[in-house]
Amino acid sequence: MVDTQVHDGYRIAELLASEVTGHEEALAPLSVVDANPDVTPTEDGTVTYHISHAAVNNHIATVYAHLEHVRVVIRAAATVAAETAADTEIYVCSNIDTQPSEQIDMIINDGAEVKRFLPVLESLTAAITAEIGDSTG
Protein backbone atom coordinates (compact mmCIF):
# COMPACT_ATOMS: atom_id res chain seq x y z
CA MET A 1 0.00 0.00 0.00
CA VAL A 2 1.32 3.43 -0.95
CA ASP A 3 1.29 6.30 1.55
CA THR A 4 -0.26 9.22 -0.34
CA GLN A 5 -0.10 11.73 2.50
CA VAL A 6 2.37 14.58 2.13
CA HIS A 7 4.40 15.15 5.31
CA ASP A 8 7.20 17.25 3.86
CA GLY A 9 7.17 20.87 5.04
CA TYR A 10 8.47 22.22 1.76
CA ARG A 11 5.84 20.39 -0.29
CA ILE A 12 3.02 21.38 2.09
CA ALA A 13 4.13 25.02 1.78
CA GLU A 14 4.04 24.67 -2.01
CA LEU A 15 0.51 23.27 -1.87
CA LEU A 16 -0.64 26.13 0.35
CA ALA A 17 0.93 28.72 -1.96
CA SER A 18 -0.86 27.13 -4.91
CA GLU A 19 -4.18 27.36 -3.10
CA VAL A 20 -3.63 31.01 -2.16
CA THR A 21 -2.66 32.05 -5.67
CA GLY A 22 -5.12 29.77 -7.46
CA HIS A 23 -8.34 30.95 -5.82
CA GLU A 24 -9.87 33.96 -7.47
CA GLU A 25 -12.99 34.36 -5.35
CA ALA A 26 -12.74 34.68 -1.57
CA LEU A 27 -8.94 34.61 -1.59
CA ALA A 28 -8.49 37.04 -4.49
CA PRO A 29 -7.06 39.84 -2.26
CA LEU A 30 -4.31 37.51 -1.00
CA SER A 31 -0.94 36.98 -2.59
CA VAL A 32 2.23 35.04 -1.84
CA VAL A 33 5.20 37.40 -1.55
CA ASP A 34 8.92 37.12 -0.86
CA ALA A 35 8.87 33.41 -1.69
CA ASN A 36 12.13 31.53 -1.26
CA PRO A 37 12.06 28.64 -3.76
CA ASP A 38 15.34 27.27 -2.41
CA VAL A 39 14.24 27.04 1.21
CA THR A 40 15.34 24.03 3.23
CA PRO A 41 12.88 23.01 5.95
CA THR A 42 14.38 22.82 9.44
CA GLU A 43 13.30 21.49 12.81
CA ASP A 44 12.67 25.06 14.06
CA GLY A 45 11.11 26.21 10.79
CA THR A 46 12.42 28.36 7.95
CA VAL A 47 10.57 31.31 6.47
CA THR A 48 9.27 30.13 3.12
CA TYR A 49 7.07 33.08 2.12
CA HIS A 50 4.66 35.69 3.40
CA ILE A 51 0.99 36.13 2.63
CA SER A 52 -0.20 39.67 1.96
CA HIS A 53 -3.62 41.25 1.54
CA ALA A 54 -3.99 43.78 -1.29
CA ALA A 55 -5.40 46.45 1.05
CA VAL A 56 -2.80 46.10 3.81
CA ASN A 57 0.74 47.47 3.63
CA ASN A 58 2.39 44.66 5.56
CA HIS A 59 2.31 40.87 5.68
CA ILE A 60 -0.74 39.33 7.31
CA ALA A 61 0.88 35.90 7.70
CA THR A 62 4.23 34.14 7.42
CA VAL A 63 4.66 30.51 6.40
CA TYR A 64 7.49 28.47 7.93
CA ALA A 65 8.59 25.12 6.53
CA HIS A 66 9.44 22.55 9.18
CA LEU A 67 10.70 19.06 8.42
CA GLU A 68 7.27 17.40 8.53
CA HIS A 69 4.75 20.26 8.70
CA VAL A 70 4.13 23.92 8.03
CA ARG A 71 3.56 26.63 10.64
CA VAL A 72 1.51 29.65 9.63
CA VAL A 73 1.93 32.69 11.86
CA ILE A 74 -1.09 34.95 11.42
CA ARG A 75 -0.57 38.60 12.31
CA ALA A 76 -3.89 40.19 11.29
CA ALA A 77 -7.43 39.32 12.37
CA ALA A 78 -5.92 36.52 14.44
CA THR A 79 -8.98 36.18 16.66
CA VAL A 80 -11.21 35.55 13.64
CA ALA A 81 -8.72 33.04 12.26
CA ALA A 82 -8.56 31.20 15.59
CA GLU A 83 -12.35 31.04 15.82
CA THR A 84 -12.58 29.60 12.32
CA ALA A 85 -9.79 27.12 13.01
CA ALA A 86 -11.80 25.80 15.96
CA ASP A 87 -14.29 24.42 13.42
CA THR A 88 -11.56 22.63 11.44
CA GLU A 89 -8.90 20.08 12.24
CA ILE A 90 -6.15 22.72 12.07
CA TYR A 91 -4.00 22.78 15.20
CA VAL A 92 -3.69 26.16 16.87
CA CYS A 93 -0.47 26.19 18.88
CA SER A 94 -0.73 29.59 20.54
CA ASN A 95 -3.39 31.23 22.62
CA ILE A 96 -4.73 34.51 21.27
CA ASP A 97 -5.62 35.61 24.81
CA THR A 98 -1.94 35.55 25.82
CA GLN A 99 -0.54 37.10 22.63
CA PRO A 100 -0.31 40.88 23.08
CA SER A 101 0.58 41.38 19.43
CA GLU A 102 -2.54 39.59 18.23
CA GLN A 103 -0.55 36.84 16.60
CA ILE A 104 -1.49 33.21 16.35
CA ASP A 105 0.41 30.15 15.14
CA MET A 106 -1.31 27.30 13.29
CA ILE A 107 0.12 23.99 12.16
CA ILE A 108 -0.68 22.23 8.89
CA ASN A 109 0.51 18.65 9.35
CA ASP A 110 -0.03 17.24 5.88
CA GLY A 111 -1.06 18.09 2.37
CA ALA A 112 -4.72 17.18 2.97
CA GLU A 113 -4.98 19.78 5.73
CA VAL A 114 -4.19 22.56 3.25
CA LYS A 115 -7.77 22.36 1.93
CA ARG A 116 -9.07 22.41 5.51
CA PHE A 117 -7.03 25.56 6.12
CA LEU A 118 -8.77 27.49 3.33
CA PRO A 119 -11.78 28.51 5.49
CA VAL A 120 -9.30 30.09 7.92
CA LEU A 121 -7.80 32.15 5.10
CA GLU A 122 -11.25 33.02 3.78
CA SER A 123 -12.42 34.30 7.18
CA LEU A 124 -9.16 36.18 7.63
CA THR A 125 -9.54 37.81 4.21
CA ALA A 126 -13.18 38.74 4.86
CA ALA A 127 -12.35 40.25 8.27
CA ILE A 128 -9.53 42.38 6.87
CA THR A 129 -11.65 43.49 3.90
CA ALA A 130 -14.51 44.43 6.25
CA GLU A 131 -12.15 46.31 8.57
CA ILE A 132 -10.70 48.26 5.67
CA GLY A 133 -14.21 49.03 4.40
CA ASP A 134 -15.31 50.23 7.85
CA SER A 135 -12.34 52.56 8.16
CA THR A 136 -12.88 54.15 4.75
CA GLY A 137 -16.55 54.59 4.73
Rank of each mutant, 00 (worst) to 15 (best):
V6Y: 01
D38R: 12
I107V: 15
E113Y: 12
S31Q: 02
C93E: 11
E89A: 09
L16Y: 01
P119V: 06
E83D: 08
R71Q: 07
I132G: 08
V73W: 02
P119M: 05
F117L: 07
A55M: 09
T40W: 05
L118G: 02
A13H: 01
H23C: 10
H59N: 10
V2E: 10
I132R: 11
A126M: 02
R75S: 15
E19P: 03
A126L: 13
T136A: 04
D38L: 14
Y49H: 00
S18A: 06
A13W: 00
Y64C: 04
R11H: 10
E68S: 13
I96N: 03
S123A: 11
S135F: 05
M1S: 10
H23K: 04
T46F: 09
N95C: 03
L124K: 07
V73K: 01
V92F: 04
T46S: 05
L30S: 02
A130I: 13
I90E: 00
E122G: 02
T40L: 15
L121W: 04
D87I: 01
G133L: 15
H66N: 12
V20W: 03
V92I: 12
A76D: 05
H66V: 10
I74M: 11
E25R: 01
S31L: 06
Y91W: 09
E113H: 04
A17N: 05
L16T: 00
S135L: 11
E25A: 12
A65V: 07
S52Q: 11
V47G: 00
E113R: 08
L16W: 00
A77P: 12
A13F: 01
D8T: 08
P100G: 03
L27G: 03
E122L: 04
L118C: 08
Y10R: 10
E83K: 10
E25I: 03
D44M: 12
D87L: 05
H59M: 02
L30K: 03
G45S: 14
L15E: 03
S94L: 15
A112F: 11
E25S: 07
I74E: 08
L16H: 01
K115F: 11
A54C: 11
E113V: 11
V80L: 07
H66E: 05
L16R: 02
A86Q: 05
K115S: 07
M1H: 15
V32S: 07
R11N: 12
D44H: 13
T79M: 15
H53K: 05
V114H: 02
G111N: 04
T46D: 03
K115L: 09
A112T: 15
A77G: 14
Q103R: 14
A35R: 15
G111I: 05
Q5N: 07
T84I: 04
T46L: 02
I51Q: 01
D110R: 14
E83M: 09
T98Q: 15
E68C: 03
H69C: 07
E14D: 11
P41Q: 12
T42V: 13
Y64M: 11
E89H: 07
I108H: 03
V114L: 02
A35V: 05
A54E: 14
A13E: 00
A35I: 15
T79F: 09
T21E: 14
A17L: 01
S94C: 07
M106F: 05
Y49Q: 00
Y91E: 08
E131G: 14
V47E: 00
D97P: 00
D3V: 15
A85M: 13
P37M: 04
T129S: 12
